[in-house]
Amino acid sequence: MSQIFHHSTNTLSRLSIFGGIFIVAFLVWAWAELNASTYATRAKVPVEQPVPFSHEHHVGGLGIDCRYCHTTVENSSFANIPPTKTCMNCHSQIWSTAPMLEPVRESFRTDKSIRWIRVHDLPDYVYFNHSIHVAKGVGCTTCHGQVNKMPLMWQESSLQMTWCLECHRHPERFVRPRSEVFSVTYTPPADQLELGRKLVKEYHIQSLTSCSTCHR
């Protein structure tokens, strides 16, 4: 009886059965990479906004403290996006007729909120509390990156659970003195681990890894 399959099929079959495990492993690896990629997490992608607010200018250039706008970061889970009035505090006097700021003035005039695009957006089943992190010595720039160098805001970190767990499991690697939490120029010292361990003890930082810490 004539062969239905070419004899190269033998080789191919052996290769694919033996290599199957590697192919599957590769596919899993590729999927995991995709999942952690900046495409999936939106990290490092500047986000276009109705008004091109520049943190670089306001924070880096003018030296405005984070809390001037993000007012409730020490009291609440949510750091707060400033109301239009905060912008108008200055911009009713400076650059008060600039075309770039027209959406701000219009919002103030018509009493309609500015529709910012949310940059740091955790899924709805995650409950993150800013105030406790700030109180325990986690700096703004630790998670949000060098905001003072961002002409347009982007999400610096992946914000994936594995990234959160890195610090939750080893807070001494990232914690800084409370006085430096809002500093954008702070760099971790060479003896971060030693300092970190001291601060973990002093600030009573617990490595909370129970699910209900964030998921409710």
Partner: peptide, 11 residues
């Protein structure tokens, strides 16, 4: 991936 959302503060 998670769709983008708008965020609207007070005026």
């Amino acid at each position: 991936r998670q769709p983008t959302e708008t965020i609207m503060p007070y005026v």
